[in-house]
């Protein structure tokens, strides 16, 4: 059996859904972050697979850019999380209720 485009797309779809479920279900902020990274990786697989299919490098460039953006996002997210943890002693998303009315 050769591994074709469909396999890559199926893998990406599975990863994307796992990540999405993680964001929606898990209550620990760090795990939510990780789940978002999984979703981004799913998109990266699609880019890489199509890049190969089309013999076009633009997809690879896109993947590299996504790495950079994901790193920046994680840096900001963790910084905010540290600030919240200092005052709240918790990283549970259900405890973020100062703004609820």
């Amino acid at each position: 059996m050769t591994v074709g485009l469909t396999h890559y797309l199926a893998l990406a779809a599975a990863l994307f859904l796992v990540g999405m479920a993680g964001v929606l279900i898990r209550r620990n902020s760090l795990i939510v972050f990780m789940s978002i990274e999984i979703m981004l990786s799913a998109a990266n697989i699609v880019f890489a697979a199509y890049s190969r299919l089309h013999g076009d490098l633009a997809g690879h460039v896109f993947v590299l850019m996504v790495f950079a953006v994901a790193a920046a996002e994680a840096a900001i997210g963790l910084a905010i999380l540290v600030e919240i943890h200092r005052r709240r002693r918790s990283v549970n998303v259900d405890d973020l209720n100062t703004l609820m009315e």
Binding site: A12, F16, V46, F47, Y50, G59, F62
Partner: peptide, 10 residues
């Protein structure tokens, strides 16, 4: 957005 863009690129 990224997933959508990846599929459009494909």
């Amino acid at each position: 957005l990224l997933m959508g863009l990846a599929l459009l690129y494909g």
